[in-house]
Design a protein around this nucleic acid. Structure first.
Lengths: 238, 238
DNA sequence: TTTATTAATTGTCACTATTACAATTAATAA
DNA sequence: TTATTAATTGTAATAGTGACAATTAATAAA
C-alpha cells in the first residue's frame, strides 16, 4: 500500500472549491516633485468607514484585469495620466487590515510629473499633494505603505535613472540635485554632482537657461532618450 | 446641486459585495547550491490538471495567514526548514493563468542551504533539485517565475550579502566564488575576488582547511554575524 | 630527501573614480 | 563700473579596480 496517495480529480476540484476567496485591491503611492519638494498624492475618502480620512488612491482588481492593469486604470482615472512609471511595491495581506472584509492589497508606487496632473481631478476626488514630511494619519495600513515606498524610491533611484520621471521635459541640474537630495535626505557638493550627472551622457544641454534662481542662470537639459533606454536595458531587472 | 455625490454607507457596502473574489496562492522558487552548481527545487504535480508535470511548490493563502506566512508554511512543509531567506518576487495575476479558476499567485524566492534539506521529503513530495540551466517545462506561468527569480537573485546578490544563505556554515572562498560566478553567469580573477571578499570584514578565517580541491588547501571561513547584520541594516530596504 | 606540481593567496602597478575645496564664470542690479 | 551670487570648472590627494605576475603550502612523484 502506497504511503502517499495521489488525490483524484475530484479531490483536486474540491481543493479549489474549499479554499477561501478574497477581495483583491490595488493602492498607489504617487510621488511628484514641485517647488523643490518631494510630495505624494492623497485623496480624502468619501465613504464609510473612515469617511473624510486621507488615504492612498486605490480600487479593486476587476475580473478581466491583472493587478498591474488595475493600478494603471486607477491612476488614469484619478490623475488623467497614462503610461506613468509604476512598480510593484509589496503585497499587504494581514487578515484584518480591512475591517469590512478580508482584502489583500497590492501596493504600487508611481512617479509622475506633477505638472501634467489634471488639476480638475483634484476637486473631483478631493485629492491633495502632501510634502513627504507632512503626511497625515492615513486609513488602514496606508502609512506603512508610504514608508515602504519612500525606502524603495531611495534605493531604486540610487541605481536607476528614475527620478527623471518626476521632472518636466526641460530641467536644470540644480533642480535634479534638489530632487535627488530630497529623495535621499542628504546634501551633495554642487560641483561634483553636476560633473557626475553630465558625465553619464544621459543629459543633453539646451541653449536656454533658467534664470529664476540666479543671475548667471542654469542651463536647461533634456534627457538623452537613447542612452536612457540603453541604461534601462542594462539595469532593468528590478 | 453638487456635481459629485458622495456614496452612502449602503453604496459602500454594496461596492464590496459586488466585487469579484479570487483564490490567492503562493509559489516558491527555491534556490540551493550544491556540487558547484546553482539549483532550484521542483515538485512533480500529483493532481489534475497537469498531473505528473513539474511545478514550483505552492499552496493557497489560508484565511488566517498573510501571503508571507503562507509561503513560510509551504516551505516548512516541503523542506522541513524554518526561517529561510524569503523575499517577494512578483504577483502573477493574469485572469486565465489557472485554467480551473482565477487564482492570483504571489511569487516568492527562497534561498536555502541545500544540505539542511530533509531528504526524506524528496520522496514524500516527488521533489527534485534541478541545475538552473536544465529546468524542464513547468505548469502555468512557472517558467516565467523562475526566469524572473534568476534575474532578481543576480541583482540582489550584487548589493546584499545573501549568497551566504545558500552556503554551509563553513565555506571556502573558492566555493563562494563559484557560487557567485554561477549566479552572475561570469568569471572572475581569483586573486581580486579573494581580496575583495575578505576586505569587507564579513568573513572570519578558521584554522581548518579544505583540501579536497588542492594540495595547498583553502581556508574555511565563517560569517561574521555582527557585521553581516550591520550591512543588512545599511542595505535592507529592498 | 628532493623536486615537480598545483590551487590558493599575495604583490605590483597602471588606471579610473571620488571627494573636498578652491577658482572662475555669467549674468544681474546697485 | 562694480559688487553679488548661483552655476560651473579646476585641482590635487586619496581610494578603488583590474590585469597579471610572483609566491606559498601542501602533496605526490622521482
Amino acid at each position: 500500500m502506497p504511503i502517499f496517495v495521489f488525490p483524484t480529480i475530484c479531490d483536486y476540484m474540491k481543493e479549489y472549491v474549499n479554499q477561501p476567496h478574497y477581495l483583491v485591491a490595488v493602492d498607489c503611492i504617487v510621488f511628484g516633485f514641485d517647488d523643490g519638494q518631494l510630495k505624494i498624492l492623497l485623496v480624502k475618502r468619501g465613504l464609510e468607514p473612515e469617511i473624510n480620512k486621507w488615504s492612498l488612491m486605490g480600487g479593486f482588481v476587476g475580473a478581466e484585469e491583472t493587478p498591474d492593469e488595475a493600478a494603471n486604470r486607477v491612476l488614469k482615472k484619478l490623475t488623467g495620466l497614462e503610461g506613468v512609471y509604476l512598480e510593484l511595491l509589496n503585497i499587504y495581506g494581514e487578515p484584518d487590515r480591512d475591517p469590512i472584509e478580508r482584502t489583500l492589497s497590492v501596493g504600487y508606487f508611481a512617479l509622475i510629473d506633477i505638472h501634467k496632473y489634471e488639476t480638475q481631478l483634484i476637486d473631483n476626488y478631493h485629492a491633495e499633494w502632501f510634502p513627504i514630511n507632512e503626511i497625515p494619519k492615513l486609513i488602514f495600513d496606508h502609512n506603512r505603505m508610504v514608508a515602504e515606498a519612500r525606502k524603495k524610491l531611495k534605493f531604486k533611484a540610487s541605481l536607476h535613472p528614475i527620478l527623471f520621471e518626476m521632472l518636466p521635459k526641460k530641467f536644470t541640474i540644480p533642480q535634479l540635485q534638489t530632487l535627488f537630495e530630497q529623495v535621499n535626505d542628504t546634501k551633495m557638493d554642487t560641483g561634483n554632482f553636476s560633473r557626475k550627472v553630465t558625465s553619464t551622457g544621459l543629459l543633453i544641454r539646451l541653449e536656454e537657461k533658467d534664470k529664476s534662481n540666479s543671475k548667471k542662470g542654469a542651463y536647461y537639459f533634456k534627457l538623452n532618450k537613447k542612452s536612457y533606454a540603453e541604461s534601462f536595458n542594462d539595469l532593468l531587472s528590478l
